[in-house]
């Protein structure tokens, strides 16, 4: 019995971890900046491309293969440092206080540009470099084989949830962010440099997206269209959890991960439907998501 269930569970958790990485940055950016970044999925795939390129480079030069783990992390930092401040300052900042339609469209324009940029830089062939996964090998317990890389993914996701919570609750930066989230004008009036907070928060969101992409490449490779697919999945998860809710995104990732894996095992033809069907059901019942709350209506 457990031989059948535990691998299923591990698959679900690993899948949930990857989905969580895609969604958590989106939800974080939304909670601080109040902007739904439609280009978020592209940043995920850019992270993946950079990581895959670095890993391929490491393999081709026959450098120490364990460097590829550093490469995964480095690519996320690299993408965040370049794109985070650049995008926030040039485009996203312009949309603050504007309608959702404007925010969605501006970032959709960015999404289109980033998709082409990726195609121009990385080409249209798919990348696959699974050195990090092979290096970690497998673990056999009770006759069942597990991929250690999956366990690493789950661990990383937990690490991110805990770190973000610690960051928000127990650091100065976290308190500043909370102040900005609670009342932007008030935060400004007491002298908090909101522009700096916005750049940091947005870059952190980009970092998480790129990290997700980087961590995903060893398991699934990367190909054109990944950004668009990831985007809508991240949307679904963020919406289920409640936009702006970090733990909500974690729980939603679990729901979607389990739903997906169950669908793959039970009705394989419907695996792609599962996340959106879950999103639809949750949003129709609780439009603000599982963990979101309603904002006051105006009069």
């Amino acid at each position: 019995m457990s031989n059948a269930i535990i691998p299923l569970l591990l698959d679900s958790l690993a899948s949930a971890a990857l989905i969580f990485f895609a969604a958590v940055g989106l939800t974080l950016v939304f909670s601080v900046l109040r902007v739904l970044n439609v280009a978020h999925g592209s940043l995920y795939s850019i992270g993946g491309y950079v990581a895959a390129s670095l890993c391929l480079f490491i393999a081709s030069r026959q450098l120490n293969p364990y460097l590829s783990f550093a490469a995964l992390l480095f690519s996320a930092v690299f993408v965040a440092a370049i794109f985070g401040p650049l995008i926030e300052r040039s485009l996203v900042r312009w949309t603050y206080g504007k309608s959702e339609a404007v925010q969605i469209l501006i970032t959709f324009g960015l999404f289109l540009m980033l998709e082409d940029l990726q195609r121009m830089i990385f080409g249209v062939q798919s990348f696959y470099e699974d050195a990090p996964m092979r290096l970690l090998g497998t673990l056999t317990i009770g006759g069942v084989v597990y991929l250690n890389y999956q366990i690493l993914l789950i661990g990383m996701a937990l690490l991110v949830v805990i770190s973000l919570r610690l960051l928000v609750n127990h650091t100065r930066l976290g308190r500043l962010i909370t102040a900005v989230v609670t009342d932007r004008e008030m935060a400004q009036s007491i002298g908090i440099d909101t522009n700096r907070i916005f750049i940091l928060a947005f870059s952190l969101g980009v970092f998480l997206a790129a990290l997700g992409g980087a961590l995903a490449t060893p398991t699934s490779g990367i190909a054109p269209g990944l950004g668009a697919d990831t985007m809508v999945l991240a949307f679904a998860v963020a919406a289920i959890g409640g936009l702006g809710q970090i733990e909500g995104a974690a729980v939603a990732s679990l729901i979607v991960g389990v739903a997906r894996v169950l669908a793959i095992y039970l009705v394989p033809s419907l695996d792609a439907v599962a996340p959106y069907a879950a999103m639809l059901v949750v949003l129709l019942i609780r439009p603000y998501g599982l963990f979101g709350s309603m904002t006051a209506r105006r009069i």
Partner: peptide, 14 residues
């Protein structure tokens, strides 16, 4: 680079 052009046009128009 069609999407690049469209994306840029969209942003400029908005």
């Amino acid at each position: 680079a069609w999407n690049l052009i469209v994306g840029l046009t969209l942003i400029v128009v908005i």
